[in-house]
Design a binder for these strands. Structure first.
Length: 486
RNA sequence: CGGGGCGUAGCGCAGCCUGGUUAGCGUGCCUGCCUUGGGAGCAGGAGGUCGGCGGUUCAAAUCCGCCCGCCCCGACCA
């Protein structure tokens, strides 16, 4: 165990410095690294494989709900970006501009998209003529650029990858239905695939998207008790359609503006997965998105090498048909080294096979999440592995949910609110009067913001029937989640 | 963008205060032997514009100035 102690020193313990722990894990698990460009990271093959799995799982859901993928330009002419006032105001400080083409100054400078509402709306205006053209249900996977002052690997980088859905509808009700449908898609996706429990809710006016009528969010709790906005879905109303003149002639011969939505999640989710599940040994990846689900580590001496490696290779070939399975038979690394390496990388299950196992026709399975060892007859592997992966996925979600519940508190008064936010962090579920000024004051006092107004099963914001605002004492309108956020 | 910390081999660091041979240590890397059930051992070897630019000096990793990057804490954001 002395060796383990030494190894663990390579990663800053979570409890000692969560931020350092996070950076250590990202870099040592080879998810990403810094580059020579400020705020821009390189997503390394292992990190990108993880992102691809996340992307593919979500892409299936986006298509299953009737959307099609398309691709729009990277550049947004300044005149387009400026059309929607709140929108341009919100994004102005973080827009990167292209001013030259080769050596020639451009007549009009081009924004590199911080988000694509402007460019997409300008094109939708040409596509929509009749109510028969609606709805338009399009998604794009793209990179966007936001000139952030403070960046963090995956959580906030200057350039990041995401998907952005952009839809047009005939009525307000239809747009609202779409907005909430996609919010629930995000929730189901986060919980099923990422094992990341989230709270779906509505953003306050202070926190909503620039240009949106309503913004909805899924909020997750990270291992340090801070909140992560893991996805957003906006009802854009007619703000953009009016500015970009996206109009259709309805059945009643009246020309009307379309009702729009947009919704997105980004590579930030990778950061969320790390901070939801990781421990002092490194990453813990949910099986459904783990690039490698089972790593086979053969253990051998010179005399047993041939037999063990042959059998291990056979097992790997067999398992590769039912899961993402790899083998590491390199002999320049000891088994112990490999154990630590694959734990650091968060591989859900390790399969050890040594001479003793071979004699008994069994192997050792080790769960990454609990580090529990399980002896398994080789003949049962085919059944045990899928069940074990499912069990790990389920347990990870349950564990994350339990952690969130433990760290979600109610408080008796504002003094206690401040104390909890200072000492324990986590979420505070508290009554609020609905006044934005009150919200800002809380932020000033405690750095906590209202993460969301939670929704009931009918997707309605839950109104408070009793109680008074945790800060001002006025009658409460809503019960909301407060937290410090990433 | 303000306050603090850091920047020396792939990674982790010492050296800097008090300038002076060929810049060192651990680990990793390469070669060979040997090993392999929780980051093994021995021998040999390669690897550095000391973050960048400028200044002071006979002489700068070391002193001074400016800039860049990363981390932490605050103001803004997926």
């Amino acid at each position: 165990m002395g060796n383990e102690k030494q190894f663990v020193q390579e990663i800053t313990p979570k409890s000692q410095d969560f931020s350092e722990w996070y950076v250590d894990v990202v870099r040592k698990a080879e998810l990403a690294d810094y580059t020579t460009i400020k705020g821009c990271m390189v997503i390394k093959p292992y990190g990108f494989a993880l992102w691809e799995n996340i992307r593919d799982a979500l892409d299936k859901r986006i298509k299953a709900t009737g959307h099609q993928n398309a691709y729009f330009p990277l550049f947004v002419p300044e005149s387009l970006l400026k059309k929607e006032a709140a929108h341009v105001e919100g994004f102005a400080p973080e827009v990167a501009w292209v001013t030259h083409g080769g050596n020639e100054p451009l007549e009009e400078r081009l924004a590199i998209r911080p988000t694509s509402e402007a460019i997409i709306c300008s094109i939708y205006a040409k596509w929509v003529q009749s109510y028969r053209d609606l709805p338009i249900l399009i998604n794009q996977w793209a990179n966007v650029v936001r000139w952030e002052k403070v960046t963090r690997l995956f959580l906030r980088t200057t350039e990041f990858l995401w998907q952005e859905g952009h839809t047009c509808h005939r009525t307000m009700d239809e747009a609202q239905e779409e907005t909430l449908k996609m919010l629930r898609v995000y929730q189901e996706f986060a919980e099923t695939e990422l094992a990341m429990p989230v709270i779906p809710g509505q953003k306050t006016d202070n926190e909503k998207f620039p240009g949106a009528l309503y913004t909805y969010t899924i909020e997750a709790m990270m291992g340090d008790g801070k909140a992560l906005q893991a996805g957003t879905s906006h009802n854009l109303g007619q703000h953009f359609s009016k500015m970009f003149e996206i109009m259709f002639e309805d059945e009643d011969h009246v020309r009307k503006y379309v009702w729009q939505t947009s919704w997105g999640v980004s590579t930030r989710l990778v950061g969320g997965v790390i901070m939801t599940h990781g421990d002092d040994h490194g990453l813990i990846l949910p099986p459904r998105i783990a690039p490698t689900q089972v790593i086979v580590v053969p253990i051998f001496q010179a005399a047993t090498r041939e037999a063990v490696v042959a059998k291990a290779g056979e097992l790997k070939e067999h398992l590769a048909k039912i899961c993402r399975c790899e083998i590491d038979a390199r002999d320049q690394y000891t088994p112990g080294w490999k154990f630590n390496e694959y734990e650091l990388r968060g591989v859900p299950v390790r399969l050890e096979l040594g001479p003793k196992d071979l004699a008994k026709e069994q192997c050792v399975l080790v769960r990454r999440d609990t580090r529990e060892k399980i002896f398994c007859p080789l003949t049962e592997l085919e059944n045990r592995i899928p069940a074990l992966l499912e069990q790990i996925q389920k347990d990870m979600l349950a564990r994350a949910r339990a952690y969130r519940e433990e760290n979600t508190r109610t408080v008796a008064n504002y003094d206690e609110f401040r104390q909890v936010m200072e000492e324990k962090r986590g979420f505070i579920f508290a009554p609020w009067c609905g006044n934005g000024e009150c919200e800002l004051k809380v932020k000033e006092d405690t750095k906590a913001t209202i993460r969301c107004l939670p929704l009931d099963n009918e997707n309605r914001v839950i109104e408070a029937r009793e109680g008074v605002c945790v800060r001002c004492g006025a009658p409460a309108k809503y019960n909301v989640y407060f937290a410090r956020a990433y």
